[in-house]
Write a protein that binds this DNA or RNA. Structure first.
Lengths: 356, 356
DNA sequence: CTGAAAGCGCTTACAG
DNA sequence: CTGAAAGCGCTTACAG
């Protein structure tokens, strides 16, 4: 409108400088480092910025040595619904801190390396489920590019990572089982190599011990986290289950067990208690609703983001944050008195509507 | 390593130019517009790029008039699990086309405007559920900034948008009801102002008409898409349901109905047929699994991305794409012969495992 | 088909 | 506390 310097109608730092009479350097300083600018100047410049509704060009500041103000979030390609919770936590913090997030799933180890190499992001959050060569290479590349990152999932000594307290979660299930008098227990574990799986068994046994139950009395069976496998495991090895209760190392497998029990006419929890792990999206909708252990996905996201931010801002890296898990008691085990569905008494309390 | 021009160890266009003997301009051309470069030159330059594993600095090219190669994806703050499916579709295409995606939910109308004004993205995909002033302002701003965008959800005449065939989906439900002999039907609609809700009722009646059933015989009740409301609606207005079947305008409400029916001891589908709409994440896990209409979320994502890409590349805008919906028949209505759970015959077919 | 040069909008030592 | 100047790594008319 002024007829000068307004190419494309976009307002630049230059415009602010001209309109206030200060130099570009000074304007830039109030944008990034108010400390070294006279307060009155700050005020004047900020007013102009407000007035002209100026917005810095991120590409320009990134190019001239500033930050891109964006962090990459890398998730496995199998998009699980609970990732949307995780994303929620991440984005909540990132928006507070003024960062944008770039989202990657497709072949992310490679995509992430490209992001690093083309200087697209200042930091990264990576959900690493398995540790393979590609990941290792990515991590090395990130270090080389000097891009801070935090891992969510499989904890790794060498890098900052956040994971959940598998041991504690399984321990709580054990305590719960003990309190409800379950003694003959089948435990369907995850793959024997998975850290998570190992920790869950470990915690479960520890919990039983603590309640005076001999953990060696527990029957163990190795699953692969799928409901199909759990179903078949039951069918082939325990066609006539001689247990009071089953603890499955994830909800998927608990579902497989539930299907099998229903198939052979055993009722849950009347004939057999059942608990899972994860509080998967479907668990509260099962019939009966599944007792399980909830991972704090939202919080994980928040903390992951907070951690990268502080790393990007130069903090010395804090490694190995462990988040607590929460036992969610539903009808499949230990919550026998709750009416399955909706009760008049529940009117004000919508939580109970979730129990189908 | 070469000791020169390798500040920070980062390889630049300059390096490629020097190593090949061509100018920066030429190298840039093979990056963006091979057409105007001699084939043999292209080959030489590309080899050098490969050799030095050069990756262009996106900020630099964005700044100098190129594209940012990123598009923003704006979703409502209520992160629903099926958004991860949508994101999957979006990201699949974006990775193919070489675009990055920036993800926004927190207060996205404002965040999106900022992205536009700071030239962070070349295009945008917006899941607009309601049409309010803030959205209108955003759309105007995007037009002003010359940033192409496509809407997912509420269709709008003025802008390119993608939505699903609500009419067709509800029509299929009606046909299904008709085929299974349901005649006395309760239809719980969505809010009377929602386009989606209106279309679903419209399609449902149309479908009945087509099968010779008088649509005026249908009992209508206005819901608000929540299961609580649907439950209460049943309790207050239809304590002793005199229907053969209920069609709820979304799965949430179908769930509310299911809860109520279970409460009063009516079995689904034996005593009452039930169908919903959306194929929500929990629907296949209900007891019984819910017959419903699936929206092609993954495909929506893909098509949305393809559309922005073509818009960004200068295509004339194609507006109003409508995607077909699919009837998913499960036990709650019209699938009476399927064993509820797992059957020996199903072993090879894991799909059936989903029926809980 | 190719190169020299200007410029994109910012940041950051270096002086003062 | 502030400014002049160089530079970030690319693209794009303009010439040839």
């Amino acid at each position: 409108m002024t007829g000068d310097g307004e190419r494309k109608g976009r307002i630049t730092l230059e415009d602010i400088a001209r309109s206030t009479g200060f130099s570009r350097a000074t304007v830039s300083r109030v944008l990034n480092d108010k400390k070294s600018v006279k307060p009155s100047t700050v005020k004047i410049v900020e007013q102009a910025i407000e007035q002209l509704s100026y917005r810095p060009n991120v590409s320009a500041s990134a190019l001239s040595g500033g930050r891109t103000m964006t962090v990459a979030v890398c998730l496995p390609e199998t998009l699980r619904p609970y990732y949307s919770i995780l994303l929620g936590g991440i984005e909540n913090i990132s928006s507070q801190k003024g960062y944008d997030i770039i989202f990657k799933t497709k072949n992310y180890p490679r995509a992430a390396r490209e992001l690093a190499e083309s200087r697209r992001v200042d930091g990264m959050i990576i959900r690493n489920m398995k540790e393979d060569a590609e990941h290792a290479q990515l991590f090395r590349e990130l270090v080389r590019c000097n891009i801070p990152f935090v891992l969510i999932g499989k904890p790794m000594q060498e890098y900052p990572s956040i994971h959940i307290d598998n041991v504690g979660g399984a321990r709580k299930v054990a305590h719960h089982f003990a309190e409800h008098g379950y003694r003959r227990i089948l435990c369907i574990t995850g793959p024997n190599r998975h850290v998570d799986a190992i920790d869950r068994v470990y915690g479960f046994k520890m919990g039983l011990s603590e309640r005076g139950i001999d953990p060696e009395g527990v029957t163990l069976a190795e699953g692969d986290y799928s409901k199909e496998q759990a179903f078949n495991l039951m069918k082939e090895h325990f066609p006539k289950p001689q247990f009071d209760a089953v603890f499955a190392a994830n909800d998927n497998m608990a579902l497989g067990v539930l299907l099998y029990l229903r198939r052979i006419g055993m009722r849950v929890p009347e004939d057999m208690g059942l608990a899972g792990f994860d509080d998967s999206f479907f668990s509260e909708y099962l019939f009966p609703p599944l007792t399980t252990v909830r991972q704090p996905m939202y919080e994980m996201g928040s903390i992951a983001m907070e951690t990268v931010v502080s790393l990007m801002e130069g903090s010395t890296r804090e490694k190995g944050i462990i988040l607590p898990t929460q036992l969610v008691v539903r009808r499949s085990c230990g919550c026998p008195y709750t009416y399955n569905g909706v009760d008049d008494a529940d009117e004000g309390e919508h939580r109970h509507f979730d129990l189908v």
